[in-house]
Each structure stands twice: as C-alpha cells, then as structure tokens.
Nucleic acid binder design. Structure first.
Lengths: 152, 152
DNA sequence: CTGCTAACGCGAACTGTTAGCAATTATACC
DNA sequence: GGTATAATTGCTAACAGTTCGCGTTAGCAG
C-alpha cells in the first residue's frame, strides 16, 4: 500500500519520526472496521508490542488524526472511538453495547443549508449519528423479553 | 404550571420524594434556555441553595432525565449539557466556546428510514447536531483576522 | 407526631484522557 | 557505518466529569 509511504512522508514533513509504535498503532487501526476505542486499540496493539503504553496510543491517535489518517468519533460521555476510514460516512451506535457500525447513506445531505440557523450564527457543519440495536443485542433483548420481563 | 404537579406525581409514583433540592434543580433548568452543563446548573442552583452539593445536581438531573423532564445533550468528550425542552428539536454548538443554541428545522426528517441500515441492525433513532460559530465568537474571529494573520 | 427510608452532603473512587520528565531511539549528517 | 540531537517513548501523576458509599437529614404515609 502506498498509503504507508504517504503517511511516512507526512510524518517526516511535519518534523515527526516513524517509530515502531506509531506504525503499529496505525496498522492496527487500519486492520479493523470495528471503530475501536483507544483502550481496545491499546489491547490490539499490545498483541504485537506488549510493552507499549496507553499514553503512546493516545498520542499517536492524535497525530494520525491531525495528519488526516484517522478520525475520532465521539459518542456522548463514552470513550471516543477511532476510524481509519476518513471518508465522509455515517455511523450507527448500539444503545446497549456501544458497538459502532458504518451506515450506507449518501452524504449528499446538504442539511446545513436547509436549516433555520439561529440569528447571528454561522453553520460550519453537522454530525449525524444513528442509534439502534446491533444484531447480538437485539437477540439478547428478544430472549430476555419472552423469558421474563428483564429489561435493560 | 401544572407541569409541576405532573412531575411531583411522577416522582411520587416511582417511590421518590420531592425535595427542595430536586424542585430547585428542575426550576433552575427550566428557567434558562442556555443548555447548561451540570457545573453551570450547579452554580445557578447555588444562588438559591448555597449548600447544595454537585452530586445532588447530577443525581437529580439523572432522575429528571429518567422521568422525561430533561434531556441530556452530549457533545464529544465535553461535559454534557442539559435541556428542559424535551421536544424533538436540533442544536448547534459553537466550535470555539461550546455554547449551544436551538436550531429551527422541521424534525420531519425521516432520516432513519431513508438510510442503509447495516445487516441485522435495527435503527431506533438518530442524533443530528450542527456545528458553527456563535455571534460572539464570530466577531472575535473577524477581529483577530483583520488585525493580524491569526488563523484558527 | 413518629418511623421509615429516599435523598442529602461529603469525600473518595472511577474513567477517559493529557502532561511532565528522564530514558530511549529514529533520523540527518559526516 | 558511527554519532549527535531532539522527537518519542514509558512511566507516573494530574486532570475533568461523573458516580459511589456512607453517615445524617428530612419527606411523607400512617
């Protein structure tokens, strides 16, 4: 992949270095589509680099974000999730387990122009996120539904 | 207002008590349209009840939320903001100062049906939030723009 | 009025994340 | 290749926002 070259270049251009840790953090993020949290990514990276520290993962995620190689997805007060797919696309988050998946929708939606901006404000963008139940949690929910009143 | 009666009833129905603190937290939240954070609300409440503790504000915000008397607005990793207006409406958040305002838009948008749900998932809703600059920050930005090359 | 217990105030704990610092190491230069 | 140098590491401590545990206070049903 020449994305690797691109990144290396960009890192160098900004006076940075391509360390083992940095490379592996990015590779790990790029290797999954699960939109991991920093902690999940830390676990993943540790499989290849057992002595890496959480701080390094956070640091490198920030760098990758700044260089446009990752995006951060914030969902409420929960831990941020990260995505190596920086294309404009939407996400859906499971209300029960927090898992995140990609949503197919044309990001054509020029919502920010069809909207009643409050007086004096300038709209620069928007965030659209779906909420729902992932397959696993839907199943779990159904089971607890017909077995007993168990909510949650 | 008979909203007060409603709430009192609901609180009692769920085995709760209408304490001075709980009533005042709600009144304070209902009295502003600024979408305060818990900390801001704490300050506001303290004007009337100087000895209230932050924990009590958090507790009561949770209760009010559960009873449908307040909604929580989560913006990224920042502190949650709260809104006594539980009608379906959208928000815009200032990128510079974090201030939140209401947006006029018909929430008719049946986005959740026009969207390519990932296989096995169920969509239960969505969150749409706008991002922008509030009047104050826009002014500040413009000033720093023509006085010096100051970007950002 | 009395008793039960939900809710309070306090402080400590917890989670997700960032900052400071000495030790390490990728890179530029010879 | 070897060497200097400063970006990056791993560590620990700090931080913000929020929740929890606990002994005390006070709503409210009887």
């Amino acid at each position: 992949m020449d994305k690797d070259k691109d990144l290396r270049q960009k890192v160098h251009d900004t006076g940075g270095r391509m360390t083992r840790q940095r490379r592996i953090v990015l590779e790990a993020l790029a290797s999954v589509t699960s939109h991991p949290t920093a902690a999940e990514l830390y676990d993943l990276v540790r499989e290849r680099l057992p002595s890496i520290s959480p701080g390094t993962v956070y640091r490198n995620l920030r760098v990758l974000k700044e260089l446009g190689y990752a995006q951060e997805l914030c969902f409420g007060s929960h831990a941020s999730r990260f995505d190596a797919n920086v294309e404009n696309h939407y996400h859906i988050r499971c209300e029960r387990c927090g898992r995140v998946a990609d949503v197919d929708a044309d990001p054509d939606t020029d919502l920010d122009h069809r909207v009643g901006t409050p007086p004096g404000w300038t709209v620069t963008g928007y965030r659209l996120e779906f909420r729902g139940l992932c397959p696993d949690c839907k199943r779990a929910q159904e089971h607890s539904d017909d077995q007993e009143g168990e909510t949650q």
